[in-house]
């Protein structure tokens, strides 16, 4: 029973974010709980933003991954409280984001350029390619880049 729960947890934790595929949902900090309810695996997730369109896809992918791993009955439940914060992102997740070209959430603004590391950067728009990112520009290497918003 314990091994089965650990396996279910590992499978759910490995599901990737469809919009930022270098991050797993565990890296992102949106996987809140995995538990067994009889034969059913219940996975509890929390959305990043209220309207994040990736949440439906993430729920389908959790179900599909668990089905593939032999768990026939899966339930994905979304809870709003406590509200997700970027403080829940793993250090490993932040490292992977930077390597992918996205500045990780960093409360000591302005964010460092993921290309050259310069702190001399400016905000172009607080709303980037997804709800969770803002668009910045590096004043040293001149590259524009996405930065994860602190939330």
């Amino acid at each position: 029973m314990k091994a089965r729960l650990a396996e279910a947890r590992a499978v759910a934790a490995g599901v990737e974010d469809p919009e930022i595929p270098v991050l797993t949902i565990e890296d992102l900090g949106i996987l809140r709980d995995v538990r067994l309810d009889g034969d059913t695996v219940e996975v509890v997730v929390t959305p990043t933003y209220s309207g994040c369109p990736a949440m439906n896809v993430i729920a389908w992918e959790i179900e599909a991954a668990l089905h593939r791993a032999g768990f026939a009955s899966v339930r994905v439940r979304s809870v709003l409280s406590p509200a997700w914060t970027t403080d829940w992102m793993s250090e490993d997740g932040k490292r992977k984001l930077r390597a992918y070209g996205i500045a990780p959430p960093d409360r000591s603004a302005p964010p460092a350029c993921p290309q050259c590391g310069s702190r001399s950067t400016e905000l172009i728009s607080p709303f980037g390619s997804t709800s969770c990112k803002a668009l910045h520009r590096c004043l040293s290497c001149r590259e524009p880049f996405d930065a994860f918003k602190c939330h």
């Binding site: 959305p47 209220s50 309207g51 994040c52 369109p53 709003l80 728009s125 980037g128 668009l135």
Partner: peptide
């Protein structure tokens, strides 16, 4: 283009709040 993304992002937030 940046404003297009901004308005669409705000719309998404609001429609997400409405759904909840």
């Amino acid at each position: 283009l940046e404003e297009e993304l901004a308005l669409a992002n705000i719309a998404l937030d609001l429609i997400g709040q409405a759904r909840a």
